[in-house]
């Protein structure tokens, strides 16, 4: 059976193809302004017999392309626990959501927490801050890691933090130190969520923000257990969606 798992997120559309339960191909594309059209480019390849969608666009995808839809929480739990059978929990920081999942047996969700409407500390937050500092995302992460210390950025709200960054720039603060401060504040917030939910390690850190080496490093040193980062951190949801087709039989 050939399965396509689609994760239609706020910032990227990710696809994973399975054949006989093994991943044979994957792809990541920018969501753009019409994520369903982007998803259609993967569906139209017709390299699948079964489709499972997840992410923000899951219901649109199900209506347009058929198949089933599951939430990204269930999908990340399944994807992460298949990649790392020893995992006890998952942290997913995506384009506009942060999710913390405690895993039960067989990749099932035992408990989870997700931010409400605010996109504080997510991929979108980093994008806005990078633009305010005139960096690409990669440059901002590299600069942050090189800075000896950070300027404290107190606001976690994307809108307020952007004005805070602009006023720091105008005050003549070094961009690298501001970048470091921004990364530190995301880390602090994330670690406090992990503590509040009370998750145990090993923790799988996935989602687009897990590609940011500065954040991976600081969460790795701040979290009490092991932190495991998949090679392709962005496709864990799509992988999990595809695996769900096997579970559903």
């Amino acid at each position: 059976m050939r399965i396509l798992g689609l994760d239609i997120g706020s910032r990227s559309v990710d696809a994973v193809w399975l054949e006989d339960g093994r991943m044979v191909k994957h792809a990541v594309a920018d969501s753009g302004f019409d994520p369903a059209a982007v998803a259609a480019t993967f569906v139209d390849l017709r390299h699948h017999d079964v489709l499972v969608s997840t992410g923000y666009g899951r219901h649109t995808a199900r209506a347009r392309f058929g198949g089933r839809a599951i939430t990204e929480i269930t999908a990340y739990a399944l994807g992460a626990s298949t990649l790392f059978p020893e995992a006890a929990s998952v942290l997913d920081i995506g384009g506009q959501d942060t999710k913390v999942i405690s895993l039960g047996p067989a990749g099932k969700v035992a408990d989870f927490e997700m931010n409400d409407k605010c996109a504080a500390g997510t991929g979108r937050f980093l994008e806005v801050m990078a633009r305010a500092l005139g960096f690409t995302l990669e440059e901002m992460a590299a600069e942050a890691m090189n800075a000896e210390n950070g300027v404290r950025v107190s606001s976690m709200c994307t809108v307020f933090a952007e004005s805070e960054v602009i006023s720091l720039v105008h005050r003549g603060e070094e961009r690298a130190r501001i970048a470091r401060g921004l990364h530190d504040s995301i880390t602090t917030r994330t670690l406090s969520t992990l503590r509040r939910v009370g998750v145990r390690g090993p923790l799988v850190f996935a989602g687009g923000v897990a590609r940011n080496q500065a954040i991976v490093k600081s969460i790795g040193s701040g979290f009490a257990g092991d932190v495991l980062v998949p090679q392709e951190a962005q496709i864990v949801g799509a992988y999990g969606a595809a695996l769900d087709a096997l579970r559903a039989g």
Binding site: Y56, E72, I73, T74, D97, F112, M114, D116, K117
Partner: peptide, 23 residues
């Protein structure tokens, strides 16, 4: 769930409720 009368959080709320039902 903590919410108000606005509809701005319906996307996130749906994801949380659906995940809860799946769980």
């Amino acid at each position: 769930i903590e919410t108000d009368y606005s509809m701005e959080d319906v996307g996130q709320l749906s994801t949380r409720v659906e995940a809860f039902l799946e769980m």
